[in-house]
């Protein structure tokens, strides 16, 4: 069946797909398996301690156990994996130039930065939900930036 898509860099896409899936599973923490979260001891926390502050106040819980990463980070990893799944559909829907994807990525980084600074200097108080949402935008924009490297629409002008 011809879907009008050319699938390239297949091995790399498979690595990214499988790796992102396991990244999300680990990031969800011990609660996913019904175990209590033990900060600094559970392997899920150890896996992310270089990458996230793992503050209990800034993290969601799953089955009453703290996730291994904060709300912003679970948004980033979750949305990145979602973006990896959606890549072929995004390419099918519309061909977007790299520079627009790049501007979107930079925009989401700036948004997250402003949110962090605004909260730090008490201009506003962000919530786990708002952190998750802004983190998700960053994760999604990172994934779609790469979409044209894995999928190309056939019979369209470059």
């Amino acid at each position: 069946m011809n879907l009008g898509l050319e699938f390239q860099n297949r091995a790399l896409y498979t690595i990214v797909f499988v790796g992102s899936f396991f990244l999300v599973i680990i990031a969800l923490g011990p609660g996913l398996f019904g175990n209590p979260s033990i900060p600094y001891v559970s392997f899920q926390f150890e896996a992310f301690h270089f990458l996230c502050h793992q503050d209990p106040l800034r993290s969601f819980t799953l089955n009453n156990s703290q996730m291994a990463v904060c709300a912003r980070c679970i948004g980033i990893y979750g949305a990145f994996f979602t973006g990896v799944i959606l890549m072929p559909f995004l390419v099918l829907i519309k061909k977007v130039k790299f520079r627009y994807y790049f501007r979107f990525l930079i925009g989401t980084i700036i948004l997250n930065f402003i949110d962090v600074l605004g909260n730090q200097f008490e201009f506003w108080t962000n919530t786990n939900e708002s952190r998750f949402l802004l983190g998700s935008l960053f994760g999604l924009s990172s994934a779609i930036l790469l979409s044209n490297e894995f999928f190309k629409k056939l019979n369209t002008e470059d």
């Binding site: 690595i15 990214v16 990244l23 896996a47 270089f50 990458l51 990145f80 990172s142 490297e149």
Partner: peptide, 24 residues
């Protein structure tokens, strides 16, 4: 074990950021 876990996760997330870096 700790170094191996960190190497796996840091290796993978930097693989992703390396792709983004190459693209940019």
């Amino acid at each position: 074990k700790g170094i191996a876990i960190n190497a796996g996760v840091l290796g993978f997330v930097n693989l992703l950021s390396g792709m983004v870096g190459a693209k940019i």
